[in-house]
Design a binder for these strands. Structure first.
Length: 781
DNA sequence: CTTCAGGAGAGTCATATGTT
DNA sequence: AACATATGACTCTCCTGAAG
């Protein structure tokens, strides 16, 4: 029975992914109808859809509403969806993909008119194999990019290539500082081990280090006791999502948000669209990398790689997201720590909501790392939080006390944050006038955004008369952080520029949303948000008379009208309109809109000719992806990514044993390299205190935050995508002990259980699901 | 705008499962 | 047992969000 339970948990984890956003949604009133399960869980029925069962044609009407998003669905060979229209409507991306294959399906007129090139989409076989290995290095400029990367990741690279293709070699120079910083100490696994040995002052080589790699077994060991200590500090990372009504009221009063000319978030949208099912992509859960935590929850304490691959394996145990967390925490201070500690020591607590306050251990860990480059993403934080539920048992009472204290402190201090503080930059920031200015001072520092720059707004009279640009640069970072923290708890992890922009552009909007009880969210855009964006764009087009979204969002493509369009955008406060009703920073909304309406996006697979063209154009224009994208009628993002994957001296097909071993070693090295010397020393010293304690590597470190570019450079014969896939496969095999998860009847039962649980969750959007909790809950069944 | 990591979709193949 | 079908794994491709 226990075994079944474990396996079940493993199985379900396959369908689950982490909830990315840190926001907490209000209670969802509507219950999805059971019969719409396919809409709710397209991943579960995907395969069925592929079968030749029914041929119900998909209605087109809804596609017309979201033509560019619905395109994908056309690719589907069949559509036996119970409620096709809702699916199409709610899974626009899915819809679009399906269309790519369904050549006989009539194309939505409006879309095709706008995107005629999309109509010709058809299924493409992947017969094209990469060019022969020989001579590629010399023929293809991209190799020099790789070479550059390799150099930076301390992997020998053909140096001459860079000389041959200087135009592309610059790319590699953008490598993150963290790599440079850490690489000095941990150039590769060998040097790492050396460094580790020197760090460790005692004699117990294998077990004395907090982070130790057993070269014989490949198991990475971490002292358990130390991990527990680390948990204390990790608790500080809990995202706090405001639901403080009194706070909101106070804030609303203070900011006089109702006076702001911001269009209110339409709550009814939430409800009306409650039946929205996530777009297929949103709901489709990763088969492999998802929810390792859940998997791990029932795994034995040790994981060893399959024999054939066990050059090195990693010992996993579900208790240790802390390394990642502490790493992240240390990076936070890069920008602000000094300010917080020095200039405004009393504001330290408020600067660390979410339980950071007073955690000595955490401070100790973070203190010395102020110069280290941030390497963890916010996503990791929430993931760590999710996994922390697994780790509760590890938390000693001390840690819990810390947590409680932290939360209390946070609660007390957040109010302070909202208050107008008698600090220099504060009074103006807290005034309602200031607020209004914030809302309207929507100048941009980007070229793209420059179209919207700070011209005075004759229509709304929002814009302050003093230059917002100068204000942006002058704004007290500390003040901005404190104010934004209320809405984005981990705001100080962002770059100073990002914070200033957000302060300038979004603070007012955030306050508006908060006043309405809507949390600021991140992560994948929901179907509803996509719809809202479309709506906002259409409304703005109607308002200004601009002819198309392409002209609005890609003004540069229309040089003759650029000036006119730009003026219209300024005059009508484009930023406010585009972000209307979407509780996110303005910028992501804008970029999302650009992607959605980019006529060069969603162009399907590259055929051989496309690939050739891409290579040829790249040889001519280097990394001018915008230019190349225009030449091949694809987005710059698409061509850049594609180019990183094609060509080169890369193997295909089955991985050899040697390759697999190289991969494992490379991943190990990259993971270790990512840890700072301070972090390693800290772990090491803790382990010395209790050499017998032992815990595995942080689970998340095994699949998140890995620099696959570095891994690619080390593996050499495979590109980063191949490496990533293979590594996921290795972990999956290991975690399932090489066996199958449920199949047949058991698999069906598992799915039914999953569906039931999802149904019970009663959520609007896959983004709202805590997959970790769900996996755990299902595993208990 | 660019880069990166995460993630989803789709084609193909191997194998488990069901049917005769 | 032979065959047909269903299912899952693997791999590759492309898209997305985040961040600087």
């Amino acid at each position: 029975m226990e075994g079944d339970s474990s396996r079940f948990k493993i199985h379900t984890a396959v369908f689950c992914k982490k909830k990315k956003q840190s926001s907490v949604s209000e209670k969802r009133p509507q219950i999805p109808a059971p019969e719409s399960l396919e809409n709710e869980h397209p991943n579960l029925v995907k395969r069925k859809k592929r079968r030749k069962e029914s041929q119900t044609p998909a209605p087109e009407s809804l596609e017309n509403e979201h033509p560019h998003l619905a395109k994908r669905k056309k690719r589907g060979k069949e559509s036996q969806t119970p409620a096709p229209e809702s699916l199409e409507n709610e899974h626009p991306h899915l819809a679009k993909k399906k269309r790519r294959k369904e050549s006989q399906t009539p194309a939505p007129e409006s879309l095709e008119n706008e995107h005629p090139h999309l109509a010709k989409r058809k299924k493409r076989r992947k017969e094209s194999q990469p060019p022969s290995p020989e001579s590629l290095e010399s023929e293809q400029p991209w190799v020099s990019k790789l070479g550059k990367r390799r150099k930076e990741s301390q992997t020998p690279a053909p140096e001459s290539l860079e000389n041959e293709h200087p135009q592309v070699s610059k790319l590699g120079k953008r490598r993150k500082e963290s790599q440079q910083l850490t690489s000095s100490l941990l150039e590769n696994s060998e040097t790492f081990h050396k460094a580790k040995k020197t760090t460790s002052t005692h004699k117990k080589k294998k077990r004395s280090s907090v982070w130790e790699v057993d070269m014989e077994t490949g198991i990475i060991l971490v002292n358990k006791e130390n991990m527990e200590n680390l948990l204390e500090s990790s608790r500080k990372d809990v995202d706090i999502v405001y639901v403080d009504v009194s706070q909101e009221q106070k804030l609303a009063k203070m900011d006089k948000a109702e006076e702001l000319p911001i269009v209110r978030f339409q709550k009814h949208d939430h409800q009306e669209l409650h039946s929205d099912v996530q777009s297929k992509k949103n709901r489709k859960h990763p088969k492999k990398a998802a929810s390792w935590d859940a998997v791990q929850g029932n795994q034995p304490e040790s994981i060893t790689l399959p024999h054939s691959e066990s050059l090195s394996s990693v010992d996993l145990e579900g208790k240790s997201t802390e390394l990642a967390v502490s790493h992240k925490k240390t990076s936070k201070e890069k920008v602000f720590r000094n300010q917080e500690l020095g200039a405004t020591p009393e504001s330290l607590d408020s600067a660390h909501p979410g339980g950071e306050v007073g955690t000595e251990a955490g401070e100790r860990v973070r203190g010395p790392h102020s110069t280290r480059k941030k390497s963890k993403k916010r996503k990791d934080a929430s993931a760590a939080i999710a996994t922390s539920s697994d780790n509760v048992a590890l938390l000693d009472s001390n840690a819990e006390n810390v947590s409680v204290d932290s939360l209390e402190s946070t609660g007390a201090l957040r109010e302070e944050d909202v208050d107008c503080r008698p600090r220099k930059a504060e009074p103006q920031a807290c005034s309602s006038e200031k607020h209004a200015e914030e809302m309207q001072g929507l100048e941009s520092t980007h070229e793209e955004e420059s179209n919207l720059e700070s011209a005075s707004n004759s229509e709304t009279r929002y814009v302050s008369e003093d230059g917002r640009d100068s204000e942006e640069s002058d704004v007290d970072l500390d003040s901005a952080v404190r104010q934004l923290q209320e809405f984005i708890p981990d705001i100080q992890e962002r770059a100073a520029t990002t914070i200033r922009r957000m302060y300038r552009d979004d603070l007012g909007r955030f306050k508006e949303f908060k006043a309405q009880g809507v949390a600021i969210r991140f992560g994948k855009f929901s179907a509803k948000e996509n719809e809202q964006i479309e709506k906002n764009v259409q409304e703005f087009l109607s308002l200004t008379g601009i002819e198309s979204a392409d002209k609005l969002l890609y003004t540069d493509r229309y040089p003759e009208e650029k000036s006119l369009i730009t003026n219209l955008k300024r005059k009508h406060a484009f930023r406010l309109h585009i972000g209307k009703g979407i509780a996110r920073p303005w910028k992501p909304v804008y970029y999302r809109a650009k992607k959605m309406f980019d006529v060069n996006n969603y162009k399907g697979r590259y055929n051989e000719e496309d690939t050739k063209k891409l290579k040829a154009y790249h040889s001519l224009h280097g990394n001018d992806w915008k230019k190349i994208g225009a030449m091949v009628a694809r987005s710059s993002l698409s061509v850049a990514l594609k180019y990183s994957q094609i060509g080169g001296d890369r193997n295909h097909g089955a991985w050899s044993k040697t390759e697999t071993q190289r991969l494992i070693k490379a991943v190990e090295d990259v993971i270790l390299k990512k840890m700072s010397p301070e972090e390693l020393r800290e772990l090491d010293s803790r382990l010395q205190e209790d050499p017998t304690g032992r815990l595995s590597v942080v689970r998340e470190k095994l699949y998140k935050g890995i620099s696959w570019v570095e891994v690619e450079a080390r593996v050499e014969t495979r590109n980063w995508m191949q490496c990533k896939s293979k590594w996921t496969e290795i972990l999956t095999k290991r975690m399932t002990h090489g066996g199958f998860v449920y199949r047949g009847v058991k698999a069906l039962q598992a799915k039914i259980t999953l569906i039931k649980r999802l149904y019970e969750l009663n959520v609007n959007d896959a983004n709202e699901i805590d997959w970790e909790d769900l996996a755990s809950a299902i595993g208990d069944h």
